Simulated assay, not measured.
Amino acid sequence: MAEHHHDHSDVSNIKTAFFLNLSFTIIEIIGGFLTNSMAILSDALHDLGDSLSLAMSWYLENYSQKGADKEFSYGYARFSLLGALINSIVLILGSIFILTKVIPRIFAPQALRPEGMLYLAILGIIVNGIAVFKLRGGGSLNKDVVSWHLLEDVLGWVAVLIVSIVLIYKDLPILDPLLSLAINIYILYNVIAKLKKILNVFLQRVPPGIEIGALQQKIAAETQALAAHHTHIWTLDGEKNFLSTHVIIPDQFSKEEIMELKSKIKELLAAEKIDHVTVEIEYQNEECENENCKA
């Protein structure tokens, strides 16, 4: 099985991003109420979800490095997925709650304080920009996902900055709830897409880009195996892919030939980004007890 080691700097960078994000979220919530801006309060809720995500990522970045033991034979990698699932649900519920507050304001816009919105937008771009910079580059999946979330925040604050400048010179308070509506729809769309991917992993769907039939044909065509069947493929955490398969071999195969065949199959599948392979050998004239033998 291919091992995945996470750099300890990932933990430190996520920790820094967490404290930056949480501190700014508190400022943002206060500023949202002071400026009476639903767009800022909407983003504050999003940032609160990001802070929760960062906290879980920080904790799970350490926890998921634990290897397999007698209680979790696959290791602890899926605990990060559990955190992602909780965060996604929190963000979806929060966005729906904000929408119930935003929609009435579209029909009855309220007075805003655009100067305060402008200052918060500048601060938001700086703080989230620093967090994105800290999380740039390779590393763990946790780090990568959080980095993209924070980049979305930067783009959101750029939008608030533009709207606040417009509001300083033009009295169009409806722009604020419209921006809030757009932010929330965008968040919901992306979070629901993310949730779908998470559930696919939990439900052990075949990872994207992998086709079982094609793999079975490849094994039969490029090795001495006569056929492969009863193949299962799943992913542990969205990164590590697992496969188990039955291969049929000629009756006269020797122990050395079987060892060479297994090695060749694992080499072929490694090229398909499958980390852990289990091969069950069946002889050509062996009676298979599995109902999928004829597949």
Rank of each mutant, 00 (worst) to 15 (best):
G129H: 03
G209V: 02
L22H: 03
L150V: 10
H8Q: 02
Q110E: 12
G209F: 12
V279W: 07
K266D: 15
D43Q: 05
I174P: 01
W148P: 00
I27M: 09
F79W: 09
S254F: 06
T223A: 09
T235Y: 00
P250H: 01
A121Q: 15
L81V: 12
L93Y: 05
S140V: 02
A228M: 03
H230S: 14
A111F: 03
E115N: 10
A221N: 08
Q110W: 01
V160D: 13
F253A: 04
N184L: 03
I98C: 15
S244R: 04
K66Q: 13
L236V: 05
E28M: 12
G67T: 04
K266A: 14
A227S: 12
P109I: 10
G209D: 01
L85D: 10
L99E: 15
A111E: 12
K170E: 07
N21T: 13
I96K: 15
L150K: 04
L226C: 11
H46T: 09
Y283P: 08
L179D: 00
D176I: 06
T223E: 06
M38Y: 04
A159N: 04
K273D: 14
Q110D: 05
N190Q: 09
T25M: 06
V247P: 11
L203G: 12
Y119T: 10
I281V: 11
I274E: 01
H6T: 07
V206A: 02
I210L: 15
T16A: 07
S147Y: 04
T25W: 01
N184M: 09
A271G: 08
G209M: 05
D237M: 02
D7I: 08
A131L: 05
H246F: 00
I168C: 06
L112W: 15
I165N: 04
T100V: 13
L60D: 02
W58Q: 04
N62E: 06
L175E: 13
M1S: 13
L167F: 04
K101R: 15
W157S: 07
L118S: 01
D275T: 02
Y74I: 09
D69N: 12
Y186Q: 09
K294S: 10
H246D: 15
F253I: 02
S263D: 14
Y74G: 15
L203Q: 08
R113T: 15
I30W: 00
P207D: 08
G32A: 01
I30C: 13
L135T: 04
N128W: 07
H276L: 09
G138T: 07
F202D: 06
Q204S: 08
I192L: 12
A270P: 02
V279P: 12
I219K: 10
N36T: 01
K70L: 13
L268A: 02
P208D: 06
N241P: 12
G124Q: 11
V279E: 03
Q217T: 11
V201A: 05
I219W: 06
E291D: 15
L199E: 05
V154A: 03
Y283R: 03
L155R: 11
H8P: 03
D69P: 05
H149K: 06
G31D: 08
N285C: 10
I103R: 14
A214Q: 13
Q110G: 08
K262S: 11
L215G: 13
E222A: 12
R136G: 14
G124R: 13
T35M: 02
L172Y: 09
K273N: 15
E260A: 13
I98R: 14
N21I: 01
F202R: 11
K143S: 02
